[in-house]
Structure formats: structure tokens, C-alpha cells
Design a protein around this nucleic acid. Structure first.
Length: 152
DNA sequence: GCCAACGTTGGC
DNA sequence: GCCAACGTTGGC
């Protein structure tokens, strides 16, 4: 099993929205960065995924989800009405992928970016590095465990 | 709203 | 292949 973190703007899709989606989970689409896409494609069913709220008042890790469907073609890239439409994506070899995520839990407290930056276990993680804009971030087992420990 | 840092595009 | 210009991300 692998561990990840995905960023989301709570105005668009918050941890509560993921919770509301229930057991069917929700399609995690709209990723338009190659490095992030490649990480999406590395996800396997059962992997754990931290949910991180970005571009908002309370930035940080808010909950946990799991992968319920491995990478498939992101439909929005072929939808001209979508902000995620990509005219240059070839249907014979689609550029962008999506996964399906299902809610596991919402943490009682936010683990703020400020706190994450102070954790030695996360020092090497792209999430806390200056200028990093990666929206899908891999977590090492020890990084994952350190986050969970910080939450208890 | 500001702006630093980054990724992508496209001319050459 | 270089690199300037541009658009986007995301913390503050």
C-alpha cells in the first residue's frame, strides 16, 4: 500500500463534500500537471490519501480518503464546456487521468501547514518545500505515520 | 489582492 | 535546444 496527499480548494471540493459522496466516492479529476498526473497513475486501490485544503483561510490536512478506482481517462478533458477541457488531448491517447476516492475520515482538528512545516519527519516532503506547487504528493510510510501520530 | 515560484508555450 | 513571455498556483 502507498500513501498520498491531494490538494483541493474547499470552495470547489471540501472534505465534507467527499464525506457526502459516501461509499460511491467521487471522481478526482481536473489534475492538469504532468508530475501530479503521473502520481495519480501510480495510485492503487486501497492506497490512503490525505485530503489537504489549499487556497483558503485554514490551510492544512483535514482528513483521509482511500483509492477505490485506479487511473482512468479524465472525461473533463474532452468536455468543451468544462474549465478542464484540453483541446490538445488526443482521444486515441488521452493526456489526463482521474482516480476515484472514497471518504474515510475527517480529523477532529486541522493539521495546519504551519505545523506540517515544523515536523522533522516531513522536511523532505514536497508539500512543505518552498515554491512547490505539486497537487498530488507521495508520502513515505514514515511520513504518513508521523502525520497520524500528530493528530492523536 | 499581492507576488514569488513554478510549468508551459512557442519563436528562433 | 534555448529561453523569454506568459499563465497558474497557492501562501500570506
Amino acid at each position: 500500500m502507498k500513501y498520498w496527499l491531494v490538494k483541493t480548494e474547499p470552495d470547489e471540493c471540501s472534505i465534507d463534500d467527499i464525506a457526502k459522496a459516501g461509499d460511491k466516492g467521487m471522481v478526482w479529476d481536473g489534475v492538469r500537471n504532468y508530475q501530479a498526473r503521473n502520481f495519480l497513475r501510480d495510485m492503487n486501490v486501497g492506497d490512503h490519501v490525505f485530503i489537504y485544503h489549499s487556497s483558503c483561510a485554514k490551510v492544512g490536512i483535514v482528513g483521509l480518503a482511500e483509492v477505490t478506482e485506479e487511473a482512468f481517462v479524465d472525461p473533463l478533458q474532452f468536455d468543451p464546456d468544462s474549465p478542464y477541457f484540453d483541446a490538445k488531448s488526443n482521444p486515441d491517447s488521452p493526456r489526463w487521468s482521474a482516480v476515484r476516492l472514497r471518504f474515510k475520515q475527517k480529523f477532529q482538528h486541522l493539521l495546519a501547514l504551519q505545523q506540517l512545516k515544523q515536523m522533522p519527519a516531513l522536511a523532505a516532503n514536497p508539500l512543505v518545500q518552498k515554491g512547490s506547487r505539486l497537487s498530488v504528493v507521495p508520502f513515505q510510510v514514515k511520513e504518513y505515520q508521523a502525520v497520524l501520530q500528530q493528530l492523536t
